[in-house]
Nucleic acid binder design. Sequence first.
DNA 1: GGGAGATGCTTAACATGTTAAGTGAATGCG
DNA 2: CGCATTCACTTAACATGTTAAGCATCTCCC
Lengths: 172, 172
Amino acid sequence: MTKRSADPANGSAPAARQVPMRDFSRSLPMSLLRAREAVMRQFRPSLREHGLTEQQWRILRALAAIEAAEVTELARTAFLLGPSLSRILRDLEARNLIERRTAKADQRRSMVSISKEGVKLMASVAPTSEAIYAEITRRFGARKLAELQEMLGELEQSLAGLGSADETIAEG
Amino acid sequence: MTKRSADPANGSAPAARQVPMRDFSRSLPMSLLRAREAVMRQFRPSLREHGLTEQQWRILRALAAIEAAEVTELARTAFLLGPSLSRILRDLEARNLIERRTAKADQRRSMVSISKEGVKLMASVAPTSEAIYAEITRRFGARKLAELQEMLGELEQSLAGLGSADETIAEG
DNA sequence: GGGAGATGCTTAACATGTTAAGTGAATGCG
DNA sequence: CGCATTCACTTAACATGTTAAGCATCTCCC
């Protein structure tokens, strides 16, 4: 019955060993990783009960909102890389949760849409999902949640156009 | 020579279709995911040049700071699951970047430590890594960065002890 | 002191992340 | 028209995330 949650922030640090570099557990990537994990830990069990992974759920949600989309557009929306999406779509199609047909104008493109079964599955998951989201909002505070999302967006903006070295054009 | 980076934030959204549920791209998990990806995108190329993945780098950093640690302790510090860590340690050991020896008192435990080679590798990566971190801090703002980390920590705290259903005891 | 259960770690199995290469279709340009 | 290039997507290969088993070892309690 011991609790299994991570909890790396107990006060039992072993004396003041001269810190070699910025305490690595307080780095930005780690903070983001832990925060996201804390959030996703809430959702995963429910999704799992319905036989969905987090990414599959993302795809269904995205599709439910836009009716039909090309694969590339869907990748951008669901924030998945092409190869991952390709595999997941293959599986979702095998489970009849989505449908796809190649575009007439351009044989390379394929249009993906959610199926009736997919909609039904979504309907069965959404209530729990929304309840969890509501509970998170209640615990953390709606105001603070909005602030956090605002800052996350700004962080993204700050880093946009860094690290590619070929988008130094057309910045106005 | 075409740019291959994801870049999901171009302004070509297809008109204002009536939003069915909270715009899924603005959900908390997505915000966290995108923010983290934006950050990690900066570090990955440098790590890759040195033949390290993000997780391997996390482990080396953690080890460099604490001399030696048991596997479980290391998993907690580097925020990795046991199986992942087990695999990575096997590889790092094969590359002579870490060393391990079983504890005398308890044959189950094994103590892991960074090797001389590991230290050397870290020394060759750290400068670039620090420079990138500094640039991120400069772009986003040191004050805001601290605020963000504070909020992320609070979010973690808010959700601690939710979703396990067996830690409802000893809450005081 | 011996066996049931807990513990520390590893292996297995499946799904995704990440990068590179492959494939078929569309385009541009001579 | 022909052909190199680009484009949309898929496959491949390797590394990690996630959950469940497996395997020693250790602990506790009788």
